[in-house]
Computed example of a mutant assay.
Amino acid sequence: MSRLIPATRGALAGLPVEVAPRLLGGVLRTRIDQVTVAVRLTEVEAYHGRGTGERPDPGSHARMGPTARNATMWGEPGHLYVYLSHGIHSCVNVVCGLAGVAGGVLLRAGEVVQGEHAATARRPAARSARELARGPGNLGAAVGLRHPVHDGIDAVSGIPQARAIARLELPDEPLADVATGPRVGVAGRAGTAAFPWRFWIAGDPTVSPFRWGRGAADA
């Protein structure tokens, strides 16, 4: 059985598509206002920025280059890019790649393994424990990270930011039961089998359901 070890910048310095499956089975732990919640990661998606890797990624926030919104993606690995989805959901990404090369891994789903009571209070709409961190907006809510105050928080050093501390731990060995396929809800070609950059633990009940993005099924 794999054991967990603290994430290092070196372990996260590869291309997001290479780093993403290594995050599975890892744990993101937050401590906010003295309340700790930990989520075991079961589903992730890789996103590359402009000039990252061999192929442009039309689904990435950084596809056109640096902006005020995606600035964290261009920073050093191990920071968390926390962005707002649909104006209400704070979603969490682990920044990957070297500083100056944009990339991130979206944390799509996980299992709450510590702090279930706090996660439930943050996610009152969840009907069961498996739904507490199922879906990227739900995961962000469960661990208590919010845009914009926690964007850029460092999950390697654990330096506090806006009364929050985040820590990422990774399995010392890659998991064997990893499935891969198109990313969820991503429009056009970026959401097709041309980009099989969604990774998940096969058979895990916390993994979110798949849905095609706009125009992806016909691309």
Rank of each mutant, 00 (worst) to 15 (best):
R29L: 07
T67A: 02
L175N: 10
G104A: 15
V178G: 11
P66G: 02
Q161S: 10
S157F: 01
G87M: 09
Q161N: 01
G185R: 13
P77N: 09
A193N: 11
P160F: 11
A176Q: 14
L80W: 07
A216S: 15
F195A: 03
G144T: 04
A194Y: 07
P148D: 11
P196R: 14
Q34L: 07
A118V: 14
S85D: 01
V143Q: 02
A38I: 06
G185E: 09
F195Y: 15
E18M: 05
S85I: 13
L84W: 11
P6Y: 13
A133K: 11
Q114F: 02
V207P: 03
I88A: 13
D177V: 11
E43R: 07
N70S: 06
P148M: 04
R146H: 06
G75V: 01
L106E: 04
M64K: 13
L175I: 05
R63G: 00
P196K: 14
R55Y: 05
V82G: 01
M73R: 10
D33Y: 13
L12G: 10
L175V: 07
R9M: 09
P196Y: 12
A62W: 05
R22A: 13
A141R: 14
W197P: 02
R122S: 03
L12P: 05
G97C: 06
R130P: 00
W197C: 04
R31N: 12
T67G: 06
G97V: 08
L170R: 12
V37E: 02
E43L: 03
L175R: 15
D154L: 08
V35M: 02
G137L: 09
A176V: 14
D154N: 14
G158W: 11
R22L: 15
G213I: 06
G110F: 06
E173A: 15
G97R: 09
A62K: 08
A155H: 07
E169C: 04
P148N: 07
E54L: 15
G137K: 08
T192H: 04
A99W: 00
L139S: 07
A202M: 04
A126M: 06
P136C: 05
D151G: 08
A141F: 00
W200V: 00
W212A: 03
A187K: 12
L170I: 13
V149L: 10
S128K: 10
G103A: 05
E18H: 14
L145P: 04
R183S: 04
H48I: 00
R122Y: 01
S157N: 09
F210Y: 13
A190G: 13
L23P: 08
V19R: 10
V92M: 02
R127D: 01
E131V: 00
L28S: 02
R108L: 03
A71M: 03
R63E: 08
E54V: 14
P196V: 04
P124I: 07
G115N: 08
T180Y: 09
L15R: 15
P56N: 02
W212C: 01
E76H: 14
M1I: 10
V184E: 00
V17G: 00
A46K: 11
A216W: 05
T52N: 09
I159A: 15
G215T: 07
A7F: 14
S208C: 12
R63N: 00
M64W: 05
T192C: 03
E116Y: 00
V178L: 10
A202F: 03
E45T: 07
G188A: 12
A68R: 15
A68D: 12
W74C: 01
P21L: 11
N70M: 08
W197H: 13
L84D: 01
G14R: 14
G110E: 02
P66A: 04
E54A: 15
